[in-house]
Design a binder for these strands. Structure first.
Lengths: 329, 329
DNA sequence: AACATTGTCGCAAACCTTTGAAATAGAAAA
DNA sequence: TTTTCTATTTCAAAGGTTTGCGACAATGTT
């Protein structure tokens, strides 16, 4: 526990002023090269480390972003966070991770926390129950940029980055239709979630144009619901294909597929929307329209940096989706 | 973008001194109740928020922990982080997440970052290639407590919290032996990793005492390696049981199991060491000795708080393991 | 010789809060 | 009346850094 070495200490030892030392260390043109060398050498030896607290106070900024997500251990978010962290590190930022546990009141607390910590910016995926986004807007008015990602509010004038829900849904469903599937079971998540609505809308659009194909829609909040719905339905309606709008639903369905020893893709085709981890656990690998948390992280970070550079206007961006074929259709 | 309201501003408006306002807001006994009321009311109205930077500078502390992990999107770590975040939030702390990407040099950078940010403490799971832990010791000497978790160094005098590797291995293997399995294929991960060594040692201990049972050991760095090893071996040696020391290896084996349409548990029993997510994806669910990232998070946080309260002596703690039966044996 | 320019460096305020010590007032005790 | 105490408030320093501006000397220009 050695005493901290500060600018003042360096200055005293070198018989220089604090300001000169400060400038010397950051290669300010006002300072003579000779002086810079002396200062930097001593700083090196004494392992001088600037006091981040003081810098933050002085500059009223910090090199940290807040990330508010419903949960880190979700199929999607940890790959987003992974990707974000990579970028952040490259730019000298770090990430403060806050979970809302899908609870709007905790979400609000977390937002407050970000504000209190005066983070440089906030990435937030709102909880499924969040209705009031005024607090977010208010924070943004205090000059803390907010990028909404994945689960974004309906509100227009805010920055959003999303996966291409419509495109992904289309890709996935068309993959089935192109193979001539005629009887499709579609699994969707919680109806209250906007992501469900977007994927559902896109789905219905396609369905509307098709009349030589049967569709059956189910809503399941979790994997085991999906499982039981599947098991109840599969023998009754004898579908030739399954669509799952999420990883979680896919795991539910696949568990039943294993249980009932259904042959994929001979007896049944399956396609999902996923970031790719879950689908490759099975044999054959499940075909999926990719919605990469990884790519989304890059995009979100990019948008944040642009924002910080002055492009503060609201913008809605999305990553495109590709179909990864895995032998399940 | 309204100007920030500070203690000074409140003081000026109320014709009080800054110190009085500061003390009034924190209910200091020196201040008259009447004054407190006035101050707190105005603070409320003006939405005064203390400047965290200034507080940190003044107190030379912050309410943030650093977390250094090889990768957030790993089977294990995100549940650890999840759990840690829950506890941290309860105590008013937040988490700074840093990935080392299993690269010692990045790990070192991250450590530096924690030191620079003067975090209140650091949780670290070292990369598999980390050999030099002196930098960590040095940071701890500067009064930043470090709790190593999961992947911990061999070094003695440091704080570690681990899953009970030996116990978990024993539980898993014994589950197979108790069912009378006679020919076991065991999959282990990267031999350089200490976690592999610990589990392997425990495994060998049990094996040493048994001579009515055949064991075959394999080392696979990833899932697909495990897959191909399994496929090459399964018909040759006709094992009646599989042991996987990790989730990743399990996914590899299970993919081949599906491919070869092997019946679990009739043709083959499987047991793994896992935190439970992966095993329940399959039907039947895979039996596993639980090594919960969640529980470990709680334990690690607990140790950290004790440390901060003054119990700084080195300690090695571990969570016990239970066998979760899933129908695969 | 007078003035302007350039290259270096230091002064001092500012960022905002915390906190030990001192000041002030009024009341109680001597 | 003077002293002592208590209750309340203020003073001022400290924490470490950044930065606009002024100071100063040396050099160049007219």
């Amino acid at each position: 526990m050695k005493a901290n070495v500060t600018l003042k200490k360096l200055a005293d030892m070198l018989n220089l002023s604090i300001s000169t030392v400060s400038r010397a260390l950051k290669d300010h043109p006002d300072i003579a090269q000779q002086t810079k060398d002396k200062v930097q050498e001593l700083a090196e030896i004494l392992e001088y480390e600037p006091n981040t607290y003081a810098i933050n106070l002085r500059t009223n900024k910090s090199k940290e972003f807040g990330v508010i997500v419903p949960a880190v251990s979700s199929y999607f978010y940890h790959s987003f966070i992974n990707s974000l962290e990579e970028e952040a590190r490259r730019y000298g930022y770090s990430l403060m991770i806050l979970q809302s546990v899908d609870d709007p009141s905790i979400e609000l607390e977390n937002l407050k926390r970000c504000k209190l910590s005066r983070v440089a910016g906030i990435f937030v995926s709102i909880s499924s129950k969040t209705v009031d986004i005024k607090p977010f807007i208010k924070v943004e008015e205090q000059d803390i940029p907010i990028i909404f990602f994945d689960k974004v509010p309906d509100f227009d004038t805010c920055n959003k980055v999303c996966v291409a829900d419509a495109a992904a849904t289309e890709l996935a469903v068309n993959a089935l239709l192109n193979k001539g599937k005629k009887n499709i079971l579609a699994f969707f998540g919680d109806q209250n979630m906007s992501i469900t609505q977007r994927r559902l809308n896109s789905f219905n659009n396609i369905v509307g144009k098709k009349n030589d194909c049967e569709f059956q829609l189910f809503f399941a909040e979790n994997a085991s619901k999906a499982s039981s719905i599947f098991e109840e339905t599969v023998y009754k309606t004898k579908p030739d294909a399954i669509f799952c709008m999420s990883d979680e639903l896919l795991t539910g369905v696949m568990k039943s597929v294993q249980k009932l020893q259904i042959k994929i893709p001979d007896d049944l085709s399956i396609v999902a929307i996923s970031d790719g981890f879950i689908p490759q656990l099975y044999y054959p690998e499940i075909a999926y329209a990719e919605t990469s948390g990884f790519k989304l992280g890059k995009l979100a970070f990019n948008r944040m940096m642009k924002y910080l550079a002055g492009h503060t206007y609201a913008q809605e961006l999305s990553i495109d989706s590709v179909l990864i074929n895995g032998g399940s259709i």
